[in-house]
Design a protein around this nucleic acid. Structure first.
Length: 110
DNA sequence: ATTATGACCGAAG
DNA sequence: GCTTCGGCCATAA
């Protein structure tokens, strides 16, 4: 029998749920850590969602730049907020004074 | 099993 | 608008 003796980055079930939900968000739309948490059945795991996004992350494969804070401010990003703004702007979403413009209208309904 | 750590949130001052 | 605080939660050590 083969056994795994070396460590290799494995994504947890929770992380997979997060990514799966994330893939449903279309360009030009955004969601919040809390809303995403609810969408995957963990209504109070907003913080954990952020952690999940912060870990692994092969930018480009997963649109984690579409996840922002509940008040419309950007929230964190592995490569810095400046980069996050780039990715978001590229999709037509306007960021003004550190916040998503027309926030309500930009929110994706899971 | 216990502890520490965060890309969070809402309420309160 | 701001900051602080308490609460929440999945993970790693």
């Amino acid at each position: 029998m083969l056994s795994v003796r070396s460590y290799m980055p494995m994504s947890t079930v929770f992380e997979k749920k997060v990514y799966a939900a994330l893939k449903r968000i279309p360009r030009g739309k955004v969601t919040t850590y809390a809303r995403l948490a609810k969408a995957i059945g963990s209504p109070n795991a907003a913080r954990a969602v952020g952690n999940a996004l912060g870990k692994n992350q092969k930018i480009g494969q997963i649109p984690c730049h579409r996840v922002v804070r509940a008040d419309g401010s950007l929230g964190g990003f592995a490569l810095g907020k400046a980069e996050k703004v780039k990715y978001i702007s590229r999709e037509g979403v306007i960021v003004r004074n550190g916040k998503i413009a027309d926030f309500r209208r930009r929110l994706f309904d899971f």
